[in-house]
């Protein structure tokens, strides 16, 4: 039978073996599958190759199934509790964004339009670093004296007001 001789030739075997890995998964296209099926029916070598491929994945399927560690739900529940607590502070950020943006803009504008001046007398802009340096300088002669701190504040506040 000429067809049989052709199907069992080394060239055909090599070609079919390229297709075999996908064969059980519905590949590699219906025409090639049909050719492979015909070839497998009469080529013990290629049939053995398909069996070996199947055994390889059967070994994977026989691997023991993994079991999640104990306590995973407790961990998840802790994370979920944090998750539930978080939205209370920033609920629906997208929906609240326009209102927040408007409020922030208004605050910035108000500050720029004169409120800053009203706040200045109550909170003089004394730089912390300057205060610390002045305190250190004044306390050299009177170490740990509370008066040194007061003096430093008076000095710096006066300087700020003068500016």
């Amino acid at each position: 039978m000429p067809g049989a001789r052709q199907d069992s030739s080394p060239g055909v075997c090599a070609r079919v073996r390229e297709w075999l890995p996908e064969y059980d998964y519905g590949g590699p296209g219906w025409w090639r599958r049909r050719q492979a099926a015909r070839h497998l029916a009469q080529c013990p070598g290629c049939a053995r190759e398909l069996t070996a491929l199947r055994r390889a994945t059967a070994l994977v399927e026989a691997l023991p199934r993994e079991v999640a560690p104990e306590g995973l739900w407790d961990r998840l529940e802790g994370a979920l509790a944090l998750e539930r607590a978080r939205p209370a502070r920033s609920h629906s950020p997208r929906r609240r964004m326009p209102a927040l943006a408007a409020a922030a803009t208004a605050a910035v504008l108000a500050a720029g339009l004169g409120l800053r001046a009203a706040w200045q007398p109550e909170e003089p802009a004394v730089a912390v670093e300057s205060y610390v340096q002045s305190h250190l300088a004044l306390s050299r002669s009177r170490p740990l004296s509370p008066g040194a701190g007061y003096d430093a504040m008076v000095l710096l506040t006066a300087g700020t007001s003068a500016r």
């Binding site: 996908e22 998964y25 070996a52 994945t57």
Partner: peptide, 24 residues
């Protein structure tokens, strides 16, 4: 695509067969 999954499965199966040849 489904074809991509089939192709990956096929290649993986060929790799597995090669890696496990000594055991089979």
């Amino acid at each position: 695509a489904e074809g991509t999954v089939k192709s990956r499965l096929g290649r993986a199966r060929a790799d597995m067969r090669r890696h496990l040849m000594g055991w089979m």
